[in-house]
Write a protein that binds this DNA or RNA. Structure first.
Lengths: 341, 341
DNA sequence: TAATGCTACTAACACGTGTTAGTAATACGT
DNA sequence: ACGTATTACTAACACGTGTTAGTAGCATTA
């Protein structure tokens, strides 16, 4: 890059002081500058192709106008591929709307969990969205207590850190209700992950609630535990279908796990939806394309991103909403795995 | 945030000058500071929980240690979902390896094409990776000629801007060769997009080259044009299969387009792979899960990201490699749409 | 006519760091 | 004993901007 022009160069060319340049270019209100001078300054800036230095601006304002997305999702590829694009787009759109930039910072498996702290303490960013908070995050709490703006994507029980998440309980309940409406009474479930994960527990809770409300007993022999990936789904479904009295429908709290389950079903020679109905969760891209197309619960990834960013920015700008624990609704997408709509 | 400690505070607590603090904490070589003083400084920094201010540091060094990914892919959701996660991970990993941060900047449809220029001119970033360059990008050329570090993901014919892309010609040729090896002689093709798109033209070229090398004529009646999405694939395949003499195999230069084509095939009552073989391109997630699983050409998204970032950083650090037009190899992933391997 | 208010500007400081040039104090060589 | 080299530091500048306090010059008011 050739020598960048500074506001001093613009001032010199326009024959005014640097202060005047700043006042004109930033359109500072209630300040008296003659129209001729204004025009001279603007002309000079254009002529030199002047862009103010963001770094210097940040130093004096004390604000970076940047928010960071800390992606802390372990090695779970599925989650990354299915949710990151929408989330990121929601975040960047909200950020742009409010005049912020977005820094993307994944935490790799070989890094210490708290390596994002430097981002905050070192003033790289005005606030951060942490996707996938861990319960052992003492640095996170310290940061929060020090007043650093933070929003969680996901939930961290036992704290009052602002957070945005999907209403897993409701989403799961709605899926199971749909199966109940279709007349199913023996509904099996496969979780998306072990119950240590909050979302897992909540989706199971939704399943229980729906059954309970329909006056059906919770039967543990109908529940299996997935572990994010396809293989776990195949194993779980196979085990579930090995029983004498098979369920007539399956609620599987993760589409990726459902992919494995569907394979197990196919290998047993069973037909979906004739022999067995299936509802998934997440609405990954593949759900639309498999045959029969998977009925599932859509997660509003864009909305999660937008909401988390907006919440964060309002906190940064000292205009926090009353509600700082936000749950977004899912949407049941009816396709073919429960029969034609 | 309570008052952040500065290096002045550390200096005061340690009873030394600010200069000494800087020298010690940055481990400046060839400078004589007694071990006792060093320890006093380090102890003070720890005690105050001091993190140097990134902004001030950038101002004095003139470097942001940040690179930006400008995502300029139009409204093409497919591309975003299939490539962004891997690309971004490759970029951030390389960035971290070299000590850089990553800014993500999508260009939304309602924005002017050149809105990323401010990122460079305003010194928000040390360099940028532009994914999806447009041929009418005069600002881009200006930026490049001014010496601003830029790497393209994709290609811009007629310039010598450093770029990283997939070897579309080779990838397509390999796919078609595979079909030829299986004995197919009448091979249809559906492009991924109109031929204005460089990648589209290249994949078609690969198809032609493979045929030519096998001594087969290029028959235009076997070629149709997709347009990114599923629908375009369904229409194209349907049209292709309406002919008297059907092809025995289809090379479809986009998995998403292939999804539509497969539907058209199914609706015509044809069986894959018995009546018709299919090879796709991109290896999207769904390719693994449909039945039969789609044989396709995998794009090394992570490698593209890593390479683009590494190239960019070497340019930023004035250590450019000789080769600045890089083509990465694809990988043919053999699944079931051409029969069992 | 003096006091006040308004217009159209500018000088100087602050932000927090890295770095260059310099300075005492001590050690070393002859 | 004297000049030189080395050690262990520090004062001061620079990075480029936003902003506060201030200053001439002129118009208006009492």
């Amino acid at each position: 890059m050739p020598q960048r022009p500074t506001s001093r160069d613009v001032a010199r060319l326009a024959g005014v002081s640097r202060t005047t340049v700043s006042l004109v270019l930033n359109n500072v209100p209630d300040v008296h500058i003659s129209p001729e001078t204004r025009q001279r300054v603007q002309e000079a800036a254009r002529q030199l192709n002047y862009y103010p230095d963001a770094i210097a601006r940040r130093l004096v304002s004390g604000r970076t106008r940047t928010i960071a997305l800390v992606w802390h999702r372990g090695p779970d590829r599925t989650y990354r591929d299915a949710f990151l694009p929408g989330l990121l787009q929601g975040i960047t759109r909200a950020a742009r709307h409010y005049g912020y930039y977005v820094l993307f910072r994944p935490i790799e498996p070989d890094e210490p969990d708290d390596s994002y702290v430097e981002l905050a303490r070192g003033r790289h960013t005005d606030g951060l969205i942490l996707s996938g908070p861990r319960s052992d995050a003492s640095h996170l709490l310290q940061l929060y207590e020090d007043g650093f703006p933070i929003t969680l994507h996901g939930q961290l029980p036992g704290t009052d850190i602002p957070s945005v998440d999907v209403d897993n309980v409701r989403g799961a309940a709605e899926a199971v209700n749909y199966l109940l409406t279709l007349g199913h009474r023996r509904i099996g479930m496969i979780t998306n992950a072990p119950l240590e994960y909050t979302a897992s527990r909540q989706r199971l809770d939704g399943y229980r609630q729906a059954l309970e409300q329909a006056g059906l007993p919770y039967d543990e022999s109908l529940v299996r535990y997935g572990n994010f990936d396809e293989e776990s789904g195949q194993v779980a479904a196979d085990d579930l279908l090995a029983q004498d009295e098979r369920p007539t429908a399956l609620f599987i709290a993760s589409d990726m796990v459902a992919m494995g389950a569907l394979r197990a079903i196919r290998l047993r020679g069973l037909q979906v939806p004739d022999d067995l109905c299936v509802v998934g969760f997440d609405d990954i891209t593949a759900a639309r394309f498999i045959v029969p197309a998977l009925t599932t619960v859509r997660v509003p990834t864009f909305g999660l991103g937008w909401t988390a960013a907006e919440l964060l920015i309002r906190i940064i700008e000292h205009d926090p909403p009353q509600q700082t624990k936000i749950l977004l609704d899912t949407e049941l997408v009816i396709r073919e795995t429960c029969g034609a709509p």
